Simulated scan of single mutants.
Amino acid sequence: MNTTTAPWLIVALREVETKLRDKAFIISTIVTLLFIIGSVAVTGFLANRTSNFAVAATDDASFRVLEQVIQDRPEDVELSISRLAPEQAEQQLSAERLNATLSGSADAQEFTLTGFNAVDQELSSLVREAMKTVKTDQLLAEAGLESASLPDNEDLILDQLHGDSERAAMASAMALVFSFLFYMATFLFGMPIANSVIEEKQNRVVEILASTIRLRQLLAGKIIGNVVLAMIQLLAFLSIGLLAAYISPIQIPFLGVVTQVAGWFVVFFFGGFLLLAGIWAALGSLATRTEDLQQSSGPVVGLLMAVLFIGLYAKGSFLVVASYIPIVSSAAMPSRLLSGEVAFWEPILSLAILLAACWLVLLFAEKIYGRAVMHTGGALTLRKALKLEV
């Protein structure tokens, strides 16, 4: 061992090197990055795609319906219409020169939209709405009324006393993203810390290592190595996602706000993951088999699920309280920051509480690890581990 290199750094580098050689880790990271890029690309493509339809009417009533479709169609729909005899329309449809034909009954009360293999759902929806409009106008004309006198959907104006609905929708979506990233990382990098500790106990490797370096250095190296890996992966996911969003052809609202809050999320993620890394290491030292870990990790898994569900459902005062609870605050405070209704001192206070809790948990984890990691006589409880001599 090189005496000029700190023992904890050697352990940390070993953890990083081992993970970077893991094909499953590399493949999952690449797949996730591709999924992020693909999601933004598909969203941009769908948002800018223009639908083109060619439809022929076989009678005057059907032609009026198609004219109404042209008036009501959204900007991303192009429609070309024509008036053809039934036989001609069928021939062009069979030759696939038309997307559909529209025919009305003798009393113009029913219409049939015919496609070659199938009728496009978007086209059928547009024709259905236009048909209702035309028939309604006809009935009103017969009664001596005009459609302009009827109530309209636009007569209802949506407003709210507090906040911005569009920003609230963005905050809800990004809160889910932040919560999921935290949840995924803590399993991808947290659980292996515990499994590594168990493996070293089973193979008696920890006894050899303990004769060379202090257990505190060994624990620090394991935690730091996995924290570095988790932070690198998180930064890669966020950077690629934000870059794809910025170069996307569609205008994503509040993208600047998301970028700023992403920085806060990285800081809160660091504190929350560091705290959990200490917990996973302690749990690994208490166990002697993987099965023991599965039984003792229930509360941690439940806490992680709580973080994920808070990202999904937490609102109002519950979210405010959650933003000051360590670990949960890693997702809750960034979620609040997205809304823009947080005082400048609140994230600082929340982060201070998180880091203080992190420090206490790491000290406790070191105490448990130092007593339990050399024990091979079966799984331990916290009470039993604290009674063991160092």
Rank of each mutant, 00 (worst) to 15 (best):
I279A: 08
L234K: 01
L304N: 01
R383C: 01
H375W: 11
A171N: 05
F45W: 14
K315E: 15
L238F: 03
E166Q: 13
S285Y: 01
A95D: 14
V267D: 04
S124W: 05
T32D: 00
V261G: 00
Q294N: 14
D120Q: 09
T58V: 07
S296R: 13
T4M: 13
W280P: 06
I30F: 06
E87P: 02
L355E: 13
T212R: 15
I26Y: 05
I240A: 03
D164Q: 11
F268C: 03
I279K: 04
R336F: 01
K387T: 14
N2E: 10
N226W: 04
I27P: 06
A262V: 01
A95K: 15
S82F: 02
A100L: 07
S172L: 13
Q295A: 11
Q71I: 01
P334T: 08
A306E: 03
P151F: 01
F53K: 01
L283A: 08
P86M: 11
I36M: 03
G284V: 05
P299H: 02
V11T: 10
F53Y: 14
Q217V: 02
F344K: 13
D60Y: 10
V177H: 04
A6C: 08
E199A: 13
V55I: 11
P334E: 08
V69N: 00
L351C: 08
I26M: 12
E129W: 02
D164H: 02
T290N: 15
T29E: 05
V321P: 10
S165V: 07
S317D: 15
P326N: 01
F35P: 07
V261E: 00
S335F: 01
R204E: 01
F53I: 10
A85M: 11
G163R: 08
E341G: 05
G38F: 07
G221R: 06
L386V: 04
S51R: 09
F53C: 00
K367R: 15
S147K: 11
V31Q: 12
R64N: 10
D107G: 00
L363A: 15
T18K: 12
E75T: 12
E78F: 05
S172F: 12
T112V: 11
F189K: 00
K384I: 12
E96T: 12
A262K: 00
F189V: 12
S179C: 06
V134G: 03
R289L: 07
F265E: 02
L362A: 07
K201L: 04
G263L: 05
A100S: 09
I26Q: 12
S296L: 12
F25N: 07
E200A: 08
R371M: 06
A322K: 07
Q295F: 05
E75M: 09
V373Q: 02
L380Y: 01
Q71A: 10
D164R: 09
I224E: 09
I37L: 15
Y313Q: 13
V55D: 00
I27M: 07
L386D: 11
Q217A: 14
F270E: 07
G278L: 08
T18D: 11
